[in-house]
Design a protein around this nucleic acid. Structure first.
Lengths: 342, 342
DNA sequence: CTGAAAGCGCTTACAG
DNA sequence: CTGAAAGCGCTTACAG
């Protein structure tokens, strides 16, 4: 900036005014400064300007996801970015991989970079470490999963209700032995989905059978192994239906059923969106929800906090809905049928 | 920092030394400063420290992708982040959506934030606007697509060879009317793949038939429409095989073939990775490559530039490989066959 | 309408 | 081993 000022023959303050489009600069000086800036290929240093500027904004927001490569996280990311970028904010996204220690470390790095706001899909069992920063003015929102030991804005899906609906859907088809495949136990949404599953069983007078519940599955391989184990249970004890409560877990269940040729014998309802699920044979019945909505809603909550909202915490809900495609409508006594070409 | 210094009864310089782990501070002072920092919940301002520090590094790198929600881009992102984050760098990712104007705007924003390096999947037809910044020391690498009108490090896949292999695979099965489905013409990789396709046809003495070439397809819907149009061509003119040269385009082709019940009649070879492609009936034959490798390689090239490498530009290649799963092995006279349960 | 001085939070370069 | 002064690139608060 000093060089631009020298070349244009003005003070740095005048250059600053021109760059920021402030009024009260003569047209002649505006022109001279712009020419000098172009000639020197000058670009202002946003970091330096934010340092001095009142309000202490960096124009950067942090987004802490489970894994930016997971299609669900990636959609959250895109939605969040669309909303934030429209406001000129840059988004620093990172992957926590269900590691609470990394959550703390990355949160600290975000704070040291003085992000204006932080959107978190939490992984640890304690987010109280953010308390002091929130009190100091940091805008924070949680999405997909609620914070623990901390009160803050949230954007969540109806996990319990969605799992309840999935299980009820299977019960209505006559199933009495319905397996539950769950993500890591420490994940709040995994517990909620299990609660919805168990509640639906109880309401129908069915037992909650621990031998049909497999938890701590976090990738498709472990889920596929769990399904294969379940299928080796003696007839009469093995499940006739499966509720897979997360997207990668659902993919694992699909793979295991196809591998063992049981995809038209054992009913399956999954959770989240799965690409091409409709083209499989049978199509995969899923409890779906709009990850995009979730990410956008979280960004909007965060922006109002950044804009100065200081009221009580708000809790936005995104609904799930069951989409029947075939796999969830298989009855308990089904035999493989000839495939109909549609 | 001033407050920490006051509370600890030392100068800010001493606080700075302790925070940065510099040697030559008495244990007593280290202890007092650390206590004061903890008590005040002090976190250093990285932006301010980078401003003053020699070398002018911000510890931020920019990543400009087509769309962070596209599974291919998302995998590039994850790989890039893994490599960059291991070095303590923060990654600002953004989506260009094939908009050259946005590419320029976002590149400028990255430069104004003084990123240490920039990794770009370019979308416009001219990246010379980065020339002056590279000369001024900005580290730049291009991935997946080469830059235009600019010489820089690249990490690219063997697009032409992969497309050539796909087309040859279909020719060997006896196909003579092979359709080409291509992404936006302005995308370099789309052209390269088309060249590979045409070259394979010519080598086998087959005509390059414009009526079988559909370009500027960029989402699955437009690709599905293109396939449906092709299938309405009179018998003898309609293609017996399709080469879909990008992941979303491949998904569109799969959907169209399934919708019209032709998935076991018309052969299909796709490009990129498609989730669950192996479980469809028939399984989808794909020319695959490791997006993760591409992202990691690009990050490594960028890091050496950031570390001071000033030599000539380097060009890394990631190989593609054809994975046969059924759809690409259908012959030109195929009839629907009964599905074998595996 | 324009600019000289001070300062954002930190590090550099130096003196003691 | 410790600190006072200067300055990174910019904006604020003020004077003219």
């Amino acid at each position: 900036m000093r060089e631009v000022a020298r070349l244009a023959g003005v003070s740095v303050k005048t250059v600053s005014r021109v760059i920021n489009g402030e009024p009260n600069v003569s047209a002649d000086l505006v022109h001279r400064v712009q020419r000098a800036a172009t000639q020197l290929d000058y670009h202002p240093d946003l970091g330096a300007s934010y340092l001095r500027r009142s309000g202490r904004r960096t124009g950067i927001v942090g987004l802490m996801l489970e894994d930016v490569a997971n299609p669900f996280s990636a959609t959250l990311h895109r939605a969040f970015w669309d909303t934030a970028a429209a406001r000129g904010l840059a988004v620093i996204a990172s992957s926590l991989d269900e590691d609470p220690e990394r959550e703390r470390r990355i949160a600290r790095a975000m704070i040291e970079r003085r992000v204006d706001g932080l959107a978190v899909v939490p992984t640890g069992q304690d987010q109280s470490y953010l308390r002091s920063h929130i009190d100091a003015g940091l805008a924070v929102v949680f999405l997909d999963r609620p914070p623990v030991l901390l009160d803050a804005d949230t954007a969540l899906a109806t996990n319990r209700a969605g799992a309840h609906e999935a299980t009820r859907h299977l019960i209505r088809r006559g199933h009495r032995r319905i397996a539950f495949l769950g993500d890591l136990r420490v994940i709040a949404t995994a517990s909620e989905r299990q609660e919805g599953y168990e509640q639906a069983l109880r309401e129908s007078g069915l037992p909650v059978d621990g031998s049909l519940i497999r938890r701590d599955l976090h990738d498709w391989e472990s889920a596929a192994n769990a399904v294969e184990e379940l299928m080796r249970l003696p007839a009469g004890l093995a499940p006739t239906a499966i509720f897979a409560s997360q997207n990668l877990v659902t993919i694992g269940a699909i793979r295991a059923l196809h591998r063992s040729g049981l995809q038209r014998v054992v009913a399956l309802v999954g959770f989240d969106q799965v690409e091409l699920a409709d083209l499989l044979d049978p199509g995969v019945t899923l409890v779906e929800y709009e990850a995009y909505n979730l990410g956008q809603t979280a960004a909007e909550l965060l922006l109002t906090r950044i804009d100065g909202y200081r009221g009580p915490s708000r809790h936005e809900i995104v609904s799930t809905r069951l989409v029947a495609r075939g796999s969830g409508e298989i009855g308990p006594g089904s035999q493989p049928r000839k495939r109909s070409v549609h």
